[in-house]
């Protein structure tokens, strides 16, 4: 079939328009953590793989904020999952899977770090520069009067906080865990200790922003404390 080449060009132009050829794929309902957990306890490989894909990298990232030993951070991810696999019938019903994973991960990591430190005597082992935040510059837009410098300031005052306060902020705001969950993960005896530490972190940042009403407002928006 003969088709003039010029016509072909028109087809090309037509096809590059972004509204053309739209493909919207239907969303399949993803199982919740608790549904996965139940299947894992029944021995399902698929559920186990899904749980692993949901949390292995998150736990690893959490661990690498605490220790410089990346291999250890990975080993502990394995330990946590191996424990679940070996004990699955003995594990009781858990309310928050995420919380269980983070809490057991952190506990085991710290225990191993303590043990290893006795052997290695390595000061650099424990990180003090983990849980930092970063202002993504690609969010910079010319439509507002805020300059990069001002945004960087918010980043800086958050990163100037003690590491434990940054960890609370990460768990509560970025991982969206509750006070109770944060307290359990960070091994605090009272829920109010988690809450207090978080308020202290926000108060510290507010102090650093003294006199800058606009930024304090922004601070509260970034880290809203109400439930």
């Amino acid at each position: 079939m003969y088709k003039p080449v010029t016509n072909k060009c028109v087809v090309i132009n037509h096809d590059t328009s972004p509204v053309n050829e739209f493909e919207v794929t239907p969303r399949v309902e993803e199982p919740t953590d608790n549904q996965l957990w139940e299947s894992v306890l029944k021995g399902s490989d698929e559920a186990l793989a899904s749980l692993y894909s949901r949390y292995a990298n998150k736990l690893y990232n959490y661990g690498t904020q605490i220790t410089l030993d990346k291999d250890l951070a990975f080993d502990v991810v394995q330990d946590v999952f191996m424990y679940i696999v070996s004990k699955k019938l003995g594990l009781k019903k858990i309310e928050s899977i995420k919380n269980y994973l983070y809490a057991s991960y952190r506990r085991r990591l710290l225990r191993l770090m303590k043990r290893n430190r006795k052997i290695q005597l390595n000061d650099e082992y424990h990180r003090s520069d983990g849980f930092m935040v970063e202002m993504d510059e690609s969010f910079y837009s010319l439509s507002t009067p805020l300059t990069i410098d001002v945004k960087k300031m918010l980043e800086k005052i958050c990163n100037d906080l003690p590491v434990r306060q940054r960890e609370v902020i990460t768990l509560y705001f970025f991982e969206e865990l509750s006070y109770q969950e944060v307290a359990e993960i960070m091994d605090m005896s009272h829920v109010r200790s988690a809450r207090n530490l978080l308020y202290k972190a926000i108060a510290n940042m507010q102090k650093a922003l003294k006199g800058k009403e606009d930024l304090i407002f922004a601070l509260y928006l970034v880290f809203p404390l109400h439930q």
């Binding site: 990232n61 690498t64 951070a73 202002m135 510059e137 945004k151």
Partner: peptide
């Protein structure tokens, strides 16, 4: 715009 710095 404010995000955790590292995502190892």
């Amino acid at each position: 715009g404010l995000q955790p710095k590292e995502s190892n």
